[in-house]
Amino acid sequence: MSLTLLNVIFAVVVAIAFAALNAAYLVWAERRGAGRIQRRPGPNINGPFGLFQPPLDGLKLMAKQLTIPGGADKILFVAAPVLSMFPAIMSFVTIPFSEMIVAHNMNVGLLMIFAFASSGSMALLFAGWSSRNKYAMMSAVRSVSQAVAYEIPMLITAITIVLMTGTMDLMEIVRQQGPSILHWNIFPLLTNSHNLLMPFSFLIFFTCTLAETNRAPFDLGEAESELVAGFHIEYGSMGFGLFFMAEYANIVIGSCLTTILFLGGWHPPLPFLGFIPGVVWFLLKIYILIATFIWIRWTFPRTTIYGLLNLSWKILIPISLFNLLLTAGLLKVF
């Protein structure tokens, strides 16, 4: 019993460290990547390639005073950034990085991640509501309607996978996708469903991940040109820092989940590459996805809130529903 408890504590510590490090260095990667795309250097002063920038930024944020605006709901205002970081870290606990590296596998891992992901939008709502600022409130409303709209196609797509694999256990989902790229859920040619629409499902899931993590072109929550900074407009210091880190931690979670559900998790694309450890493949896949996130952000302008909701309700949900039915039918036939 105590061993399990220790195990969990150790897992949580590792998860926090992983999330925080990733968040910090993804900011660096994002800024360097943006610089690359935009023909400018990006951070390059502090340390080699500017690698000391993230810890120094963190230090600066921690040294600042946390101001609470007059008339704000103090408890919610302070709780919101913590609440936004909490689900991001907790989700890491069930992510299998390889056959061996998983903090705590459970047979409802997928459900747990979705449960935590949904609670993340509560944090944005708390932050926007408690700030007593019209911009923050508009942003909170936007964020929640966005989260509601995009969780549906995301869940439907995930259910498609659950139908195909017959389990919600993340490790089991990955195990069924071995050993080669043709067994991955994105091209399930050699698995039992033969569903040719799965690449579309992958695109839908990826789009929803973009929207769920409030990333451009769906960064309507913090649209800086009209809502200034959105829900974290009144936050400074580490309050802002936590929101910022949570955004990147969520990106990592989203990429992990996409990798697990569609890209074969820790499996190499071809069986003879199996000599490379699974965790390398897993990390490679998630960082390619994250690079795509960054690339998309610096390529596309922001949509409008109506464009965003229309995309979800009128295009993504019907397609994903159709795909769910098709998968169910194909599973019945074969």
Partner: peptide, 13 residues
């Protein structure tokens, strides 16, 4: 104008 739209890369170009 394009920055207002969120297309920050255009700004640099």
């Amino acid at each position: 104008n394009l920055v207002d739209m969120g297309g920050l890369t255009n700004y640099w170009y």
